[in-house]
Design a protein around this nucleic acid. Structure first.
Length: 872
RNA sequence: GCGGGCGUGGUGGAAUGGUAGACACACCGGACUUAAAAUCCGGAGGGGGUAUCCCCGUGCGGGUUCAAGUCCCGCCGCCCGCACCA
């Protein structure tokens, strides 16, 4: 037995096959045990898994295996976020079909994931690109359309004129398409939208209930939804107006500053602007310039405020006889509020910049606390602090919040154009979710356009609307639209010639409900509500923080939409959320300045100094900063190579060690070596224990000596602590606990021979429990050890070891003794020793006697069983 | 600009207001070995002293407390998110 090294390359595939054959991780929906749903964000099938996946899935697997051991019915599925642009790009580059490329990638990545030994129920695997999945998405789209949750409207998009497609904001770089490099245009397109903004208030309020989410993510979502309370306010145009409208409506959150208003500004896209531009070449040119720079590019991030006077003036709504000039300004957004604002330069930085540039009045109306009204003035900085209103007639002396209420009531009572002049309104930054994509490789939007009957949903009996296989990507743009026949269909209502919608859905739709599909992946309906309601919400969801807003917000919305259409009975999809950090690695550069991959270098240590050399050329390599693994910096490490060299358990263990899971972890060779050594150390400990058992063959239970009892205590404490740490997702601390226990067991193993009767049982028990503690993290090693120890069945099926509470506490405690807060000694006392007795002991200690030097202490603080502080 | 986070040995990091540096990596010494690797044992925050010990020490400056890495106030630095949102 002893002397043999543990060989992961042999053992890992063996156990993977056994788990497979026994269907160890297949989960039944009708299992009566308490359900527990753990899910990691499913991957995009790019071709190969990366270390980020390894980290993500290692964490999820620990949680899954732990809760299984805790007796729960654990659902731990895996699938593929399989639609998306890269497949089309690959199709163009390699002349393959996007589906072929995607399915090959899935097969390759599935094999990689299997080699990690994850406790996944592969019978529930889904891929969003398969009609069996997206047909249900189409059905729900129709349900949502009928329920009024979906709408079709015009919207501005980034249009790449070369690739002939809509680009997401993230795909626009310096105003140019990320692939074509062509200047991006703003285009009005009719698109499908999920009306997420109808849920803005609910999505915002419900964040408070997501107590198991990182605060950071909740704040990000709160900001993204961007609720603000304000007033819609009508300004009457002065009578000499040259336009058809008689008033302009603005939105403001600061109606209290109305007496400080000095101008009105319209968006370049405001209807009134359009009317003015039609009659005025200068305004038209200004509007065109605004469009050239767009509203999404960095050109405007430099923040220069520009505008053009329209010639129009509006009546000041509260100052009789005064008028304000109306400008078109580049900083006013059409799709927030009303597309028009009033400017109060004294109390808004942007308005101040604008006013200084165009020489408009700056009249302060809010006096900061402690300022003198006679001398207070605004220079380059607007005052946005709260204070007391002044220079404002009937608002004078009020606080900002009070003034807002009074002025709102004032305007509500007056009328302009037959409407109340002012109306309190809540605005959100959250926009409706545009889901139309001019792309082939996505879920077809199940809609038919008929010249006679209009826009109609595809009848459910005709679902799925399947993507045609015979497509060509020779032409830029939407291959679905170019297909010769696919889009031509008969109208489901009148039977006449009609046209299919050729846009496909944003891939974020696919990932907005997959967690629900996993609960009944073969159902004929999108979900089986009873089943979904039993499993959902996901107890623990784990993934990257990059999805903090879009994916997680869309999923929260979609769950509400599914509830509204009867597919689930809940609002929130994810009860617990954990966002893990990235995997980083050192970067290396050759003398020529090229990035060098870690596999091409050798590191030489010289004391604390590390130097790198190129493996082949021998040239010195400079060691650069630690960065997120990326192909461009060549600092990636391939999981396959790690698994082949060290085994999956080592990779998993390393990923969980040292770094707190929410922080970035640095992948290092030395760290992996360490993890691998630990694996061998556990194996040696088990082997040695087995040798002892064979050699002495006398386990006499219940005859513990001091050593054995101390070991037992340590084992029970470790079992308890590791469980707590795993439940809190503090894997690094769980690992540290396991290291400590292992060290103790190794020491104990060396002492068994001295008193085998007393110690062997404690050792055997301790080693068995250690194996169970490492099982969620290094499952293959654990199974091997479990079997070697002659235990029944699989450790994967073994219940988490019980803890004897009596063994968690020591009878004796060590009390540190401080003098004036500095540690000067310690005493060991029986747990629960009363304070007077402790005090007596402390004062008789030689160190304390020496330090006190005959003086009486001023005070002695005794925290029972904890600490003593002598104050002199 | 707004919002959030972080700052502890050579390194990753640990520490319900209660012995700062657990655990690990790297390093040094010893044992084993013909030798190396592996393994085992030991050392180690900085400074002073033969030593018992003493002083300093968690980004910086104050404060609260018997006691502060932890709480409060004011700075500095780094990282992340949002960003003309009226």
């Amino acid at each position: 037995m002893s002397g043999e090294r543990y060989n992961p390359r042999e053992m890992e595939p063996k156990w993977q096959k056994i788990w497979d054959d026994r269907q160890s991780f297949v989960t039944a929906n009708d299992d009566p045990r308490e359900p527990y749903y753990v899910l990691e964000m499913f991957p995009y099938p790019s071709g190969r898994i990366h270390m980020g996946h390894v980290r993500n899935y290692s964490m999820g697997d620990v949680v899954a295996r732990y809760h299984r051991a805790r007796g729960k019915n654990v659902l731990h599925p895996m699938g593929w976020d399989a639609f998306g642009l890269p497949a089309e790009n690959a199709a163009i580059e390699r002349k393959t079909h996007p589906g072929t490329w995607t399915r090959q990638n899935i097969a390759a990545m599935k094999a990689q994931l299997k080699s990690m030994g994850l406790s996944i129920d592969w019978t529930r695997e889904i891929a969003t690109c398969e009609p069996e999945y997206y047909r249900h998405q189409q059905a729900m789209f129709i349900d949502m359309l009928e329920a009024g949750l979906v709408t079709r409207k015009q919207s501005k998009v980034n249009w790449d004129p070369v690739d002939m497609t809509v680009l997401a904001n993230e795909q626009v770089i310096d105003g140019k398409g990320w692939r074509s490099g062509a200047p991006v245009e703003q285009r009005e397109l009719t698109q499908w939208f999920f009306k997420i903004s109808d849920f803005a208030e609910d999505l915002l309020e419900a964040l408070d209930g997501l107590t198991e989410w990182p605060e950071k993510v909740r704040i990000m979502q709160r900001n993204w939804i961007g609720r603000s309370e304000g007033l819609r306010l009508l300004f009457e145009l002065a009578p000499d107006r040259t336009v058809s409208q008689t008033s302009v409506e603005v939105f403001t959150t600061r109606p209290d500053t109305i007496f400080g208003a000095s101008f009105l500004a319209l968006s370049a896209d405001h209807p009134l602007t359009a009317e003015l531009a039609a009659a005025n070449a200068e305004i038209a040119e200004f509007v065109a310039e605004c469009h050239r720079h767009g509203t999404s590019t960095e050109a405007l991030e430099k923040g220069e405020k520009k505008g053009i006077f329209t010639g129009l003036r509006v009546k000041h709504p509260v100052v009789e006889g005064e008028t304000l000039p109306v400008y078109v300004a580049n900083f006013v957004l059409m799709d927030y509020g009303t597309g028009a604002v009033f400017g109060c330069p004294a109390h808004d930085q942007r308005d101040l910049d604008f006013a200084r540039k165009y020489d408009l009045p700056v009249k302060p109306v809010v006096l900061p606390a402690g300022a003198d009204a006679a001398i207070f003035s605004i220079a380059d900085e607007a005052n946005t602090d709260p204070g007391t209103i002044y220079n404002s007639e009937f608002l004078d002396g009020l606080g900002v919040e009070e003034a807002k209420k009074i002025i709102a009531a004032h305007f509500a009572a007056r009328s302009v154009d037959g409407r109340p002049q002012g109306q309190v309104e809540v605005n959100y930054r959250l926009r409706d979710w545009g889901v139309s994509r001019q792309r082939y490789w996505g879920c077809p939007i199940p809609v038919i356009h008929c010249e006679v009957c209009g826009t109609l949903p595809v009848p459910k009996k005709d679902l799925p609307v399947v993507l045609p296989e015979d497509v060509s990507f020779d032409k830029p743009g939407n291959a679905l639209d170019h297909h010769p026949t696919w889009k031509h269909v008969d109208c489901p209502q009148c039977g006449g010639p009609a046209r299919r919608e050729t846009d496909t859905m944003d891939t974020f739709v696919d990932s907005s409900w997959y967690f629900a599909r996993f609960t009944a992946p073969d159902a004929d309906t999108p979900t089986i509500p009873d089943v979904a309601n039993r499993w959902l919400p996901v107890d623990q969801y784990i993934g990257g923080v990059e999805h903090a807003i879009l994916h997680l917000l869309y999923s929260r919305y979609f769950t509400r939409a599914m509830r509204a259409t009867g597919h689930v009975g809940l609002d929130e999809p994810f009860k617990g959320l954990f966002t893990q950090g990235m995997v980083t690695h050192e970067t290396y550069k050759s003398p020529a300045g090229d990035w060098v991959t870690p596999t091409d270098i050798v590191i030489e240590s010289d004391g604390d100094q590390r130097r790198a050399r190129h493996l082949k050329t021998g040239e010195p390599i400079s060691i650069g900063s630690v960065e997120k693994m990326s192909k461009s910096k060549k600092n990636v490490v391939d999981p396959d190579e790690i698994v082949a060299t060290y085994g999956a358990d080592t990779a998993r263990w390393f990923m969980l060690s040292d770094s707190p899971p929410e922080r970035d972890v640095q992948w290092t060779e030395a760290g992996v070596e360490g993890a691998s050594r630990f694996q061998q150390r556990v194996w040696r400990l088990v082997s040695e224990t087995i040798d002892s058992l064979e050699q002495f063959s006398k386990i006499v239970r219940g005859t513990d000596d001091e050593e054995a009892l101390a070991l037992r205590r340590q084992v029970h404490r470790a079992v308890h602590a590791v469980g707590e740490e795993i439940e809190g997702l503090r894997f690094n601390r769980a690992v540290a606990q396991i290291y400590e226990l292992t060290n103790a067991l190794v020491r104990a193993a060396g002492l068994v021979a001295k008193a085998p009767e007393a110690r062997l049982a404690a050792l055997e028990e301790g080693v068995g429990r250690l194996v169970q503690l490492i099982a969620p993290m290094m499952p293959h090693l654990a199974e091997t050890c479990w079997q070697a120890l002659g235990r029944e069945g699989l450790v994967a099926d073994a219940p988490w070891p019980a803890v004897d509470p009596a063994l968690l506490v020591d009878d004796e405690v060590t009390l540190p003794i401080q003098v004036n807060g500095k540690r000067r000694g310690e005493i060991a006392v029986a747990r629960g020793t009363p304070a007077p007795e402790v005090e007596k002991l402390v004062l008789s200690l030689s160190e304390i006697v020496r330090i006190l030097d005959g003086k009486a202490p001023r005070k002695i603080v005794i925290v029972p069983d904890r600490i003593v502080n002598v104050v002199v």
